[in-house]
Structure formats: C-alpha cells, structure tokens
Design a protein around this nucleic acid. Structure first.
Lengths: 348, 348
DNA sequence: CTGTTAGCGCTTTCAC
DNA sequence: GTGAAAGCGCTAACAG
C-alpha cells in the first residue's frame, strides 16, 4: 500500500540536523527546546506527515498508566451497569499490552456525598485520565476545575454536562430514541388507536434520560394529546395494585404500550398473566428478562443503548488521547438499535 | 488490575533454564528443538499462561506481511462494494504500524475465468493470507488445495463455501434477514393484507443471497401462499413497462412490499411518481438513494448488512491469526440492523 | 538546551 | 540444538 518506508523519529532528526532525543522533546513538549529548533522540527514533522508508531511508543514508555472510571454501583443489580462493566473489562484487556490499568470506583447514585468521595478517591490514585458518569452536575462543575488544574483529561459517559471542559461524551440521544419508538408505533398502529406510556421505577424517581425519551416519543407520535396517556408508578405500586390495573386495562385497552426503560419485561409479564390484549409493546435494553419476553412474543420491540460499547469506547478514546494528544470528537452517540425476536441474537 | 507484572519470554526462558531464543523457537516451531526442551517449555508457557506482547512482536518482526483481498470489481458502481472498500481501507490503516500491507485484486463477477485469474495473480504476490469473496464454488474447491499446500490461510466474506478449509466466514445470514423483514411486515399489516415481493436486477440474475432472503421472508410471514406474490424483472423491463406496472398496482394494491436487495429506491420512486398507495416498503442496504428515500418516507424500513464491517473484521481476524496462530471463530455473522428514518444517522 | 545511551519484549542472525 | 547479541521505533535518564 505504501511503497515508501514509513518515516520515523530518526528520519526527522536527521533531516532537522538534531538528535532523536530532541525530536522526542518537541513532540511531547517535554523539557526545554530552543524555539528555533522546535519550529524547525515541527515543520519537518508536518512536511513528512510523521505518524508515531504507537506500539514502539507503548513498548518504550514504561511508567504504568492509570485510567479511573467512576460510575454508580450496581448493588441493586441493575443489569444496565453489569453490561457497562463488561465494556470496562474488555477495554482493560485491550490495554494490558499498553501497560495501562483501569480502576473502577463506584458511588451511590442517590447520595451526592458519595459521588464527591468517589471523585476524591479517584484523584488520590493520580490517574492519567478519568471516565465519569456525571450524575451530579454541581459537583462536576466544582471538580472539573481541579481536573483542569492537574491536567487530567476526563470524558463523560451515560449522561452529559456541557461547558466544563470534558474531552468527549459517550452516550445516547434519549429524545431521539423516543422518536424511534414512535416511528415503530406509527407504522403498526392505526391513527386512532390509543397509546399508553408506563413509567416504572423503584421510587417514582425518573432520570432525565427517561423523561427525554418520553418527550421525544410524544412529539414524534404526532397524535392528539388525548390519545396518549402516561402512567407513573413505583415498582411497589405496580405489584400491589395489579388487579386494579388489569381492570383499568380491560375497560380501556391500549393497543400500543411504551415503557421508556428497562422495566418493560414487568409489563409484558403482567399482560400475559392477565391475558390482556396489546398490539405493540416497546421497551428498552437487552437484559435477560427482556430478551426472554421478546423471544416469547410478550415484547415486540426493544431499543438498545449499547452500554458495553459506550464504556469501551469512552476508555479507548481517552487512552488514545492520553498517548497521542490527538483531539477527540466531542460527542459520540451510540446507535439506537431496533431489536426484534428475529435479529436479537446478533446483539447479545 | 494485575498487580503481578506481566510475564514475558524471558521469564519462561529463565524458568526453563534455556535462552529466550529457544523459547521463541518452540513458540513458532521454527528450527529444531530437542523434543524434551520443547515439551518443558510448552509446559511452562501453559502454566504461566504466557501471552505474547503483540506490539513487541510487530516491532521486532521486520519482514513485511501482505494480505490480499479478492473481490468483484465495482465498475458498475455498486455501492455495496464501495462501502466494503472503505472497510478495507480502514483495516489498511490499522495495520500500517504492524508492517502489513493490504492489496486488492478485482474480478468480473460474471466471468469465471476472471476469478481464476484473480486468484493466480494473488498467489503471485506471495500473500501471508487471503480474503476472498468466493463467487465460483468449483474454482474455490480447486484452488483451496493450493492454498493449503502453500500454507496460506484464507477467509471468506460476503458468500460462504463449506468444507474447503477456510479459516472463517464473515457475512450475513440472508434467510434470517428475510425473517426480520417478515416480522416488520407482520407487526404493521393486518393478517389479510397482501404482500408483494419485487425482485429487481440487471439481467434477472439473482444471487443465492437474494433468494435466501425471500425464502426466509415467506417462511416467516406465515401467511397463506395466495397472499404473497413475487414479481421478477430486469431493470430494463422495470423502466420500460412502468405504465403497465402502475396499472396492475392500481387494480390490485399491495399494502406491503418487500424488495430483497439494494434496488428498493427504484420502487420507492416509482410509487411516488405514480402516487400509488402502500403501507410498508422494506428493502436493503444503506446506499445514498435508499437513505434519501427512507428520509422522505418513500421507504419505511431498510435492513443493513454492514459491508464495511465485514471486510474490516475479515482482514483484522485474518491478521490476528497470522501473527498469533490463534484459532478464529468459524462464522462471524454481522447484525441485521433495522433502520428507520429516525435512527439512520447513527448507521451511516 | 541537546546528544548519547540504555532498554521495552520480541525476532533473527550468527556463532558454537 | 542452542546461546548470545543486535536491533525494531521510541522514551527516559544522564551527561554535558
């Protein structure tokens, strides 16, 4: 593909009439170099379009690098975070040969203090880079100053906060995913068929993500308000008021049901238990319960957000930045995958 | 992540009481090693779970490696192949630092001779590995013997041929993708609504892929035969008999239309030109014309086969095998992506 | 400020 | 058969 041999640091040194060491110094702005030499070397680097051999680089660079990832703990067995962890592990393996270690620090997503502590802990590890799920905006705004001061590059994943100097954000466009769900509804339902949105969570606390999905969904559905209804309940209510809910659905059935989070399998089971009719049930995330329900026909579509890929890419990009200082694309949204029974095996 | 330092060839050498050179020899079965030493070293390699540092390896291994890819030419501007080429180029870039070059050789997919020639040409380049779209089965069956004899590993992509000693196959499951299309139809159409399949190609020649898609589609549709109709025509007929076709569709409309290949945009344009009604139009491939039609609403679903990823993965896996001799998964099917207007931007 | 040197983990050559 | 030594492209430590 390239007949000419790849040009290396030595070629540059020679052409510039300096030593390899000096070229290295200008390349990494390490130590002092006469301005004149610097510009000269830079010019030649540009001219020859020098690309470092990152393998030689990793081989030679002996200091261990450390990337620290800060994320909510998954003590509540949230499968989303389990998937995310797999991505972290994969990245760890990829980076082993690069002498780079990944540490994970978890916090309790309902306790701001816990988040602050996690960040402090991370800083004590003297990381070369941070990967953060920035759950608390004000904390981040404060700590970002420290990161900048200590020259620690950081990326966000899962959630995004603007204007604090992040290197990049890896996540999904929640509103857009709601629009995808709406499209699937519209293709399947007649214009006058009613749609129900069921918001289910542990304590009736709903993240920004979930609300954005709903906003996107309703906007794209493009249907009179009266045809969309939103139910909001805690998991506990859902369990205790089953009869009552079944009754409501029997009296007023909804051909389309949209559950804007992982809990959709609960709805699927419920509908089955009570033999309730539906035309289309759409939910989120490829967790085992949902996969099973999709395969059995209880769920019709799942939308996937690729948590594994998000953490993997976040870490790898940060690493690339650390070793090459090359700019990174600010926003990296992962695809909104549409999953049905027939293609699910390719996404697990 | 690993407190213990990574173990290397030297550690093994030391523990076995031999030199690094000898360890290398047993690792690569190169040169002669006393059987006794060999087994001893092997045992220690196992025991210590030695993993070579592939970067050090690439650095030290100076001979250039060559991977040759043999694919149909895209002189007819088939966009599928243009995408595939992008994957080849990406792989080329990734492998640059590994001192590995990718060459491409094209053939005329309608001429068996041309395919034979392409393979001969490839062999003259003394490749370290081959990536082949095995269009002609009998040719491959003959040439595979040569590959084996010369110890050249080869992988297939796009199409598959069994029992000739390929390392792996990268492609799609065509029948399964037809089933995905059927699922989308069934979700959107009432049971009694009719479905039309339109087969369009240059010379009414249809690849195995296309027929498999149709088979899968019809099987999964699970509908009385009478409700599915298949039209088969050349692009030329399609252009010259427009009025006639429009008439037929006006007299007997089909709510669902499935076009099992890239040409679906032609159908979309046609329907629009003649203001014909449809409920759902499903086709294949993310080429510009299809993307435009999807965005404007002329097409409802596209199924994507990720040609770029296929070539990229095929090359990278072959490379990994070449340098590590690690076994490769035999079949690597790419996901059957469901694309709608609202998520397409993440797949282009 | 800059050149020189040693060495990362592995492959390869050249002796013995 | 096998060990010792050189070197891949780069970084880092040490002299100047």
């Amino acid at each position: 593909m390239n007949p000419a041999k790849r040009i290396g640091i030595k070629d540059i040194a020679e052409k510039a009439g300096v030593s390899a060491g000096t070229v290295d110094r200008v390349l990494h702005q390490r130590g002092d170099v006469k301005a004149e030499t610097r510009t000269k070397v830079m010019a030649i680097v540009e001219e020859l379009n020098y690309k470092p051999n990152i393998f030689a680089r990793s081989l030679a660079y002996k200091k261990e690098r450390r990337i620290v990832l800060i994320s909510p703990d998954s003590r509540d067995k949230n499968p989303y975070w389990e998937k995310a962890t797999i991505g972290v592990e994969r990245a760890g393996i990829s980076l082993e040969d690069h002498n780079t270690a990944i540490s994970q620090i978890h916090f309790d997503a309902s306790q701001k203090d816990s988040f602050v502590q996690a960040i402090n802990q991370a800083l004590e590890l003297e990381p070369d880079g941070l990967v953060i799920d920035p759950v608390f905006k004000d904390v981040i705004q404060e700590k970002a100053a420290v990161f900048r001061e200590q020259q620690i590059p950081f990326v966000f994943f899962d959630a995004n906060i603007k204007g604090v100097g992040k290197l990049a954000y890896f996540g999904q466009d929640a509103a857009q995913s709601g629009q995808v769900a709406a499209r699937l509804m519209r293709n399947a339902l007649a214009d006058d068929e009613k749609v129900l949105i069921i918001k289910l969570s542990k304590d009736k606390v709903f993240s920004q993500h979930i609300n954005s999905r709903i906003t996107g969904f309703i906007a794209a559905l493009n249907t009179p308000k009266s045809d969309v209804e939103v139910w909001e309940m805690s998991l506990c209510e859902w369990e205790t008021r089953r009869e009552e809910i079944a009754d409501m659905l029997r009296r007023k059935p909804y051909p389309g049901i949209f559950v804007p989070n992982t809990r959709v399998y609960k709805v699927a089971r419920f509908l089955e238990d009570y033999q309730l009719e539906k035309k289309l049930l759409i939910g989120y995330d490829l967790i085992d319960e949902n996969i099973a329900a999709l395969k059995s026909g209880g769920i019709d579509f799942l939308i996937s957000q690729r948590p594994e890929e998000q953490t993997y890419n976040a870490i790898m990009s940060l690493f690339n930045y650390i070793i090459s200082k090359q700019e990174v694309q600010k926003t990296r949204l992962s695809p909104i995958d549409i999953i049905v029974k027939e293609n699910i095996d390719y996404y697990c």
